[in-house]
Design a protein around this nucleic acid. Structure first.
Lengths: 218, 218
DNA sequence: GCTCTAATTATGCAAGCGTATAAATACTTG
DNA sequence: CAAGTATTTATACGCTTGCATAATTAGAGC
């Protein structure tokens, strides 16, 4: 008989890139909502509206998908921060200020991003390839920040040798990261924009430079 | 026959407190070495030299053990930082300095602690009881820091109203957290004590107060 | 030293995991 | 429109996981 077998799932063939993106997006959704442990192959497939087997067609092992997802998050945040610079004032001090504000506001300062980041960080210590991915992201961010700092110092006619900018970059990176953390973890106990203002004030103090230019941005 | 059954494991009855501590310590070991995922009931039992069943005798569910372990880490770090104050100078500025140095050096600034912290933080967003545990720890730390800041400001004859100390506490907490992160993640790319020095310099700039007292500590 | 009980071990189960592989099907190409 | 292939589904296997429960035993109290 078998007149009506349980109807096989219909599907479309998506481009390779599209599928990879979808799978990564589904992974991020899982991690954000239920932690790394919630990102099972089956759950990810469900969210991507795909069968589990397909995941292994695009990613040799689950860890590869996880790693790709991690890089995607870091990359997304980096790009969002850089975007803020595109539309920013041309004055280096205003640019630095805009960079900080972008990192300490939506959509970068978001609990989901922290969950993702934290989930992955736990692996950095164990998995060398993850550690490499992390270091690249970190150094890239700090280099970008260091360049902004140098330009801001020069615009204020302050010394900006490498040894100075390096130390400032470390400190200011810490300020941004630390405030980002606070905001992600307990955004509700801070007023809107409070963390960004606090960050800018602290950075101004560290650099000894005012970032608010007359006739300011926008 | 049965002349020699496969020898049942011998054991001693430990006090309830001792056992709990041992189980928590074993859990932390697992998390630190292989991430939260590595902290399975069986592995934890192995490290505690105990059979898996015993864990459920002391902790109704695995999550309860995990939560207890999280609180233990946070508590340990808090206590270690406070200990540094016990043996510190009496000058408030030196005390603040000592507090910062303690948080940015061994044993607090350690990759293992970060792994632990990160693993747990991923759960904060999902599990309300974990979120409560976290907020308590965070606010406790910030309150302690805020008190230190107030005293340091007063010692330097600077205004120290609540609104001022609150904002400073937020910023300085960020500096400490951020540098702690950097150090934990990539301690090897920093010179010894570099992060503590950087932190103190940044904090001095933010407060407008020198923390180095003539005739310094010790 | 016997007894009793609480602490501990031993055993097992059901569920969920990642992965392997074979079968089916939507497209591409001629 | 037929054939071929890359993409996708379906199925299943072996392992590990958290948890339940029964059997044991160490140590306290009389």
């Amino acid at each position: 008989m078998k007149t009506q077998t349980a109807t096989r799932k219909s599907f479309r063939r998506e481009g390779e890139d599209k599928r990879r993106e979808d799978l990564i997006a589904a992974t991020l959704q899982c991690v954000a909502e239920r932690g790394l442990a919630g990102a099972t192959v089956r759950e990810i497939a469900l969210r991507a509206d795909v069968t589990p087997g397909l995941i292994r067609y695009y990613f040799p092992a689950k860890d590869d998908l996880i790693g790709a997802a991690y890089r995607a998050v870091m990359n997304r945040m980096t790009v969002q921060a850089s975007d803020a610079l595109e539309n920013a004032d041309s004055d280096p001090r205003a640019r630095l200020s805009a960079f900080v504000t972008a990192n300490l506001g939506a959509p970068i300062m978001d609990p989901h991003n922290l969950s993702l980041w934290a989930g992955f960080i736990g692996l950095v210590h164990a998995d060398p390839s993850m550690a490499a991915a992390h270091r690249d992201g970190y150094l890239g961010f700090r280099d970008e920040l260091e360049a902004l700092i140098r330009d801001a110092l020069l615009a204020a006619f302050k010394p900006a040798e490498k040894s100075v900018t390096r130390r400032h970059a470390i400190a200011i990176n810490a300020i941004i990261d630390g405030l980002w953390l606070e905001g992600c973890l307990a955004g509700d106990i801070f007023a809107d924009g409070e963390l960004a203002e606090t960050g800018i004030a602290a950075i101004e103090a560290v650099l000894g430079v005012s970032l608010a230019i007359e006739g300011g941005a926008k």
